[in-house]
Design a protein around this nucleic acid. Sequence first.
DNA 1: CCGTACAATGTTTTT
DNA 2: CATTGTACGG
Length: 707
Amino acid sequence: MPNIKEILEKLNPAQREAVESIEGPVLVIAGAGSGKTRTLTTRLAYLVSLGIPAERILLLTFTRKAAREMITRAEALVGNSCGKVQGGTFHSLCHYMLRQYGYLLGFSPNFTVLDRGDSEDLLNLLKNSLGFPGAKRHAPKKETLASILSKIKNQGKTLEEIITTEYPNFVDLIPQIERLFKEYELYKREHQLMDYDDLLINWLTILKDYPQVREEVGRRYNYIMVDEYQDTNLLQGEIVVYMASSHRNVMAVGDDSQSIYGFRGANYRNIFDFPKHFPEARIIKLEQNYRSTQPILDLANAVIERSKIKYTKVLFTEKKEGPKPILFRAKDDHAGSEFVADEILRLTNEEGVPLSQIAVLMRAAFHSYDLELELTKRGIPFVKYGGLKLLESAHIKDVVSILRILVNPYDFLSWNRVLLLLEGVGPRSAERIVNLLKTSDLESAIFNIKRQFSQPELQKLLNLFQDLMGKRLPPLETLSQVLSFYEPIFERAYFEDAHRRERDLESLIALSEKYETLEEFLTDLVLEPIYSSEVEGERKEEILTLSTIHSAKGLEWHTVFVLSVIEGRFPSSYSLLNPEELEEERRLFYVAVTRAKERLYLIAPLTIYVPGEGRTFAKLSRFLQEVPKGLYVEYGRQEKPIAQAQKEEKGASINMPFKVGDLVRHPRFGEGEVMKVVDQEKVMVNFVGKGPTLLHLKYATLERLSP
DNA sequence: CCGTACAATGTTTTT
DNA sequence: CATTGTACGG
């Protein structure tokens, strides 16, 4: 095993300073690819090698996976049992603490955590029972309500502020919304429920109101490290301050130019506030990039330079030269998919790049739909991170609701969902049954329901509960019993695409095997959500990654493809009205670009299909338009693999420069597609709006959009 | 009171 | 396009 001194010597001076500053607060500003993870893992190993018990170290990261990986890497460095280091997300930490201290606020240890969908369902339930008087049409949807509420909690704003600035059309409804939110809070408290925000708020409340808890926690965790600090919000920032208040041994690591979670209340200014809370904080900057080649970094720097906000550092590299980023203007999404698939095969077959070292990144999960079909067609295996999570599909939620009731019988939200699935039970009966459950203890309530309602499926459900409650079987066994009850319901409700959905149920079974208690299984499902392709892809060694940029945070690959680099998709059209959101899109693009080590491809379709408008032309993303052309190489639609075309260069035909399928622009008629090459001088072009038109190239000046 | 058939409706990013 | 609300028949 290497000795810790040797390990330290491999670090650059700034990294080493960060590792060795162990007492007192430290703020590390770490640029993309600057060895941040390496620094954190080395510091972990260093602390343990100094004899600090691993269980006294707390590592807060963005996903539990990231925490686990860092801990494993630290273990590989010093071999000591770093395994006992406490690591996870803010939400999982808060959950863990609340299971112990939640009683101070009246919560039992097995409270249920609501995911976003659950919160929305509950808001909807209350909205309907309160009856939004007056404007039924104009009442906010449950999604809107949930996001307003979350903003209030995470950004410390008032309902009035949010409504007047962001949802002025609901100004008249403020009193009703206020009332609804109060009901929502009350309902959760009465039924042992917490939503994501409550986890943070409730733990923070305990830290604030109970100095003895604060001290206990301070004794328990002597060293705190927080990764991705730019993506923490107000509440999380405060939690850090309180948890470190007794010893002040806290290191925050972040990069203001990579903050991409503003929409969820994250505020990169937390980084600048850190020295306010901890005036004695040492500030260390990591500016040398070890990840990307110079051309990739040049593009990244050019993109972020044009930002309105001045960021704290500029990246530099000593790394070798490499190919320039490639921009591919595809005819449409499908042509883009074919290009990506071709290139992936070329890279793996000819250049020997492992599939696991390639990623396709996108702004929104649906941008890769077409590509996914193409990859499946060609038998290229992939995992996709982002988009719908396992828990978010209806059939999984059904099953999970049954499991939740077993853990927390007061979870009437789940009761309600499950009851509505049953044959012969509608909203009305469900309400009456829930009322019975509310008024007496569980056993007699079930007894009463059985007497008053005769629906066979309901009887079966209650028998199942009586059978399983209190037995505490392993999750796998409980799940298989629940599934055999659920099967007829499943087939009735989802008979159309039962097959696809069945795979998810199998994934759920596979997941459950790893857990010893149902409680753990259920909370992990909410706190550490998993994508269905993750479970399936687990076995395969060599597998391509598809990911939203948000989910690609902190990761790197040899080759990166970025899809849909066009206006409206990236930047997203939702962000165009708000300069701050647009800035976030820019940072997001910066994050995407800086994931690549050697090769970067940017894909931009020339036309896209817009639901109501048909096929329309797409503009190249402003993030590329603003940047000097020399920073990337542009390729058009090619029949040949790119390497070959690179060599041949432009030996284009002189007579007829167009071919069928080319996209062209005419000064008067606008944009269109070449339908037919009539002869050496004439083409038929289908113009947007005008329709098919015959053009003489002698007279008409046609500009080609797809070279 | 339940279930179904149909229309409408709006589709980012995530713990 | 898939979910969510509404209208109506059983």
